[in-house]
Nucleic acid binder design. Sequence first.
DNA 1: ATGGTCGAGCATCGA
Length: 255
Amino acid sequence: MKIATWNVNSLRVRLPHVLNWLGQERPDVLAVQETKMTDPEFPVAELAEAGYRSVYSGQKTYNGVAVLSKLDPCDPITDPADFDDPQRRILAVTVADCRIVNLYVPNGGEVGSDKYAYKLNWLAKMRNCLRLELERHPRLVVLGDFNIAPEDRDVYDPESWREKILCSTPEREAFRALLDLGLTDAFRRFDQAEKSYTWWDYRLNAFRRNLGLRIDHILVSAPLAEDCLACRIDVEPRKLERPSDHAPVVAEFRA
DNA sequence: ATGGTCGAGCATCGA
């Protein structure tokens, strides 16, 4: 079982990259964020041609999440209780014996802004949702663009990012609070190269200089942590023409 | 201190 996450920054623009990557990597599940398209526009047929079923929760211009799966995804949830939110950032589905929660966590703008308050409130509500999901589904995967670099080693220049958005202490505490539910950061279960990142700003040749942050994550419940064989970042798609600013993250599981 | 690049959709916002 191979499960991946990728913020594609417009599925319309990135569909060729996504189809190529699915063809090479053949994950069982790909969670996508920032589709930036409405549901009627979703490229169901092209993905079906590639062997993937689509579940999606889209909106015009902003946000939008989807799960692409070889097997039929069931029991979708896009609007958990207490989330009165028109922004399409959440899509939970069940694939085989795994519950998969795909998240596009708010960016947060600047620390102290209204968007920042929205982000922290959103994360607090999400923690409650995930506690309930864990009660119902012992095999739980929570993945996506968290817009949080959990530790200084996940940041190319921790001092310049100190208490900035994506790195502030309240954001890191909110991330830690998700782990405290009984989730594990799959990437950190394995030896990894230093300076491993999933996002690089389009500006200033940031990717070429590896000025990145690790903000895309795959969190797994204890039974899945036991079964996790590998977790890696695939930087290859970030090298292509017209790339997303994010790289995919892939986790592999026994059976 | 500011902007730098993308994607959306047509001036500027969000990231």
